[in-house]
């Protein structure tokens, strides 16, 4: 089994009030020097079978049509290596 990660972010030109609210809270918490925060979504897909080109193409379609709304969001698809998955599980 392999894991494919889809990250979805609002496009740079779209106002992100949630990210701004997080950013504004930082000085109060003692975190200085962070000038901007943008908040996105991360999807971890556990894929049965091999993550070959065909499987990645299908996941790309899924991200484009459903996980992200490309009118307002950009997305990236990446395969997480087995070692990283094991590390994350520790």
């Amino acid at each position: 089994m392999a894991r494919v990660v889809v990250d979805v972010m609002l496009k740079p030109e779209i106002l992100d009030p949630q990210g701004q609210a997080v950013q504004r809270a930082l000085p109060r918490l003692g975190f200085d020097g962070i000038s901007d925060v943008r908040q996105g979504k991360r999807f971890e897909l556990e894929v049965d079978g091999p993550v070959d080109e065909a499987a990645l193409a299908r996941i790309h379609d899924l991200a484009e049509s459903f996980l992200a709304n490309t009118v307002i969001e950009d997305f990236t698809v990446k395969v997480e290596e087995a070692a990283e998955v094991a590390e994350a599980a520790k």
């Binding site: 949630q18 709304n69 009118v71």
Partner: peptide
């Protein structure tokens, strides 16, 4: 309707949250 692309654009959270 915007998600179905029957109307253009998209809806997002109110700017004041």
């Amino acid at each position: 309707l915007t998600e179905a692309h029957l109307l253009p654009g998209a809806m997002l959270g109110n700017d004041h949250l």
